[in-house]
Simulated assay, not measured.
Amino acid sequence: MHHFLILGGDPRQLYLSRLLEQAGQEVSLYYENPSFSLGEAMEDSDIILCPVPFSKDKKNIHAENQLKDMDINTFLSRLTSAHTLFGGSIPLSVTEYCKAHDIPCIDFMKMEEVACKNAVATAEGAVAEAISLSPMNLRGSSCLITGCGRCAEALADTLTGMGAHVALAGRDAKKLARAWCHGYGAVPLAQLDSHIHGYSFIFNTIPSMVLDAGLAALMDRDTVVIDIASAPGGVDLEACNAHGIRARFCPGLPGKYSPMSSARILYEALCSRI
């Protein structure tokens, strides 16, 4: 039997704790008003489950609740080779530290089964956010997705299933060709300024500035923009708002809209590695 420490994060951590306890594992949950210190919990645990994403500011371990001792450097100073560390989108500085100190470190988001299933949860959350912002139906609407990765593919499939007309924009000609073969519109990212007008919904999945002030000025005023890229995102939200465009940065959608399902994805991946 292992002793798990579940640290920070969002409601996914609560459901993950429940699944592990139901499996008969010993679990310490450092989530909201814990009755123990992080240092004590780390001493008593051999497997540490950090959140997805591991950090949003590269300084502290991500936690929706106000928690003490979440500084990454302090956390690393307490890690030993007796620990096994899990987390999502773990910063390079953390993985390098673990490698230098012989600490097993597994990134959930580098596991194909997690990344693909997480993309589906993210797509459903993005659709929910879009519906909440827009005065229009998704069915019959024109949707643009910037990026051609897992989240973009899952989102394109979800939107198409809801009756929307979908185009993908990206830099990779091969991926755009594949998008076209699947029945989607295909727009080279360099030509986005000629195509940005006319979409009711725009979803960004690229974690660098893509939808800048210049493109915001060309969008329809009733367009809804949902940025689901990793921090810092890829949408100039201030420029969109200045033009009256509804725009929202939406990190952590699986934890917000499907924490139970998302926790089970992590649990199954965890079981396959232990």
Rank of each mutant, 00 (worst) to 15 (best):
F4E: 02
L5T: 06
D10H: 06
L14W: 00
L14D: 00
L16W: 05
L16E: 05
L20I: 01
E21M: 10
E26S: 15
V27F: 08
S28G: 07
E40V: 04
A41I: 03
A41S: 06
D44A: 10
S45L: 06
S45E: 04
D46T: 12
I47Y: 06
L49V: 10
P53E: 13
F54E: 15
K58C: 15
N60A: 14
I61Y: 04
A63I: 08
M70K: 08
R78K: 14
T80V: 07
T80H: 06
A82E: 12
T84D: 08
L85Y: 07
L92P: 00
S93E: 15
V94H: 01
H101N: 15
H101K: 14
H101S: 14
A115R: 15
V120M: 05
A123R: 00
E124G: 00
G125D: 06
G125Y: 01
V127S: 02
A128V: 05
E129V: 14
L133C: 12
P135D: 06
M136A: 09
S141L: 05
T146H: 04
C148K: 00
C151H: 02
A152R: 00
A154L: 02
A154D: 03
L155F: 05
L155A: 01
L155W: 04
A156P: 02
D157Q: 11
T158N: 10
T160M: 10
H165W: 11
V166P: 03
R171K: 09
D172C: 07
K174E: 14
H182G: 00
A186I: 12
V187L: 14
P188K: 13
P188A: 05
S194D: 09
S194V: 07
G198C: 10
F201A: 08
F203Q: 06
N204Q: 08
P207M: 08
P207A: 13
V210Y: 07
D212M: 12
L215I: 07
M219P: 08
R221L: 09
D222F: 07
T223G: 05
I226N: 11
D227T: 09
A229H: 04
A229R: 03
S230N: 12
A231Y: 11
G233N: 07
D236V: 14
E238M: 15
A239V: 12
G244Q: 13
I245Y: 07
R248E: 10
L253W: 08
L253K: 05
L253C: 11
K256A: 10
Y257M: 05
Y257D: 02
S258E: 13
M260F: 04
A263D: 00
E268P: 05
S272W: 02
